[in-house]
């Protein structure tokens, strides 16, 4: 069963000194793809700016805007209503490991097999991946990777940043959803399974009441290619379902940052993120 969810996502910066101009791109509008439909979407900024919308290489809707004239704070708010995709069970007709190693597959998904900036390769992690792959078929392998990641990482805020790589988080033994996803990507790719990073939102409760607004979170998980893409949430150890709202996909965080920009003058600090989600039906 799919849900209809309203998401209100607010994020921004505060600057040390008044900033004369800034150029920004927000990737916060949910996608319409793979069963999910975005019914309404609207991005506003404060100070107000004319926004320009385009779809990037990864198919993500980007809201670009520039602000001129001194300002000390920038707040971006995205509101959307989304018909989420219902959860799918583990796929059937899954290709075998040998089929995944075939040239047509490796060529087609080359971007999702090669190590990436935040999910680099590491010999020890590659050994782990091979061990896990030897014991599982590809479809069992994905949840097994999730289990392994959750064993190694403790969920903790504030110890890692957006530029922390999977290897660093793994060595630290803690992190947030982004680090869980990156670490899972390293293992999946090391085993030869095409894998991509997904950013989006998560409704926290599986039996949410309709009409009730709760605090949600911006979230990240992964998708592995098992004959088709299949989403898995390594932080929570569950398959992706109606609670997940997909915004963007890419090789890792760097392809899908929710808010990215440059400005001139002063220094900036993040205002943090607030996400409010309401199940509408």
């Amino acid at each position: 069963m799919s849900w209809q969810v309203r998401v209100e996502h607010s994020t921004g910066y505060r600057y040390g000194n008044p900033v004369i101009s800034s150029y920004n791109e927000a990737r916060i509008v949910p996608q319409t793809a793979s069963g999910q439909v975005t019914l309404e979407a609207d991005v506003r900024t404060e100070p107000a700016a004319t926004t320009y919308r385009y779809w990037d290489y990864w198919g993500t809707q980007v809201t670009a805007f520039d602000i001129h004239g001194p300002h000390q704070e920038l707040i971006v708010t995205g509101r959307s209503v989304v018909q989420t995709a219902s959860g799918r069970g583990r796929p059937t007709n899954v290709p075998r490991w040998t089929a995944l190693a075939d040239e047509p597959v490796t060529d087609r998904f080359v971007e999702f097999i090669r190590p990436s900036h935040s999910a680099p390769d590491h010999p020890e992690l590659a050994d782990t991946a091979r061990e896990l792959a030897a014991r599982h078929t590809p479809d069992e392998f994905v949840p097994a990777v999730g289990d392994w990641v959750r064993e190694r990482l403790t969920y903790r805020h504030g110890t890692t940043g957006v530029h922390t790589s999977a290897v660093d988080a793994w060595k630290q033994g803690e992190g947030v959803c982004q680090d869980f996803a990156h670490l899972a990507l390293v293992l999946m790719r090391a085993a030869g399974l095409p894998a991509r990073y997904v950013s989006g939102y998560l409704h926290p409760s599986a039996d949410a009441a309709v009409g009730e607004t709760v605090v949600g979170q911006s979230h990240a998980w992964v998708e592995g290619w098992l004959g088709d893409w299949w989403g898995f949430d390594p932080t929570n150890g569950v398959a992706v379902g109606e609670q997940h709202v997909i915004v963007a996909r890419g090789r890792d965080y760097n392809d899908v940052p929710p808010l990215l920009g440059v400005y001139s003058g002063g220094s900036s600090t993040s205002l943090g993120v607030t996400v409010a989600v309401t199940r509408l039906g």
Binding site: N24, L259, L260, V262, Y263
Partner: peptide
């Protein structure tokens, strides 16, 4: 002339 523009990346949020 305004102050020489040098760009800094915003701290991602």
């Amino acid at each position: 002339r305004d102050a020489p523009r040098s760009w800094a990346t915003e701290v991602p949020a």
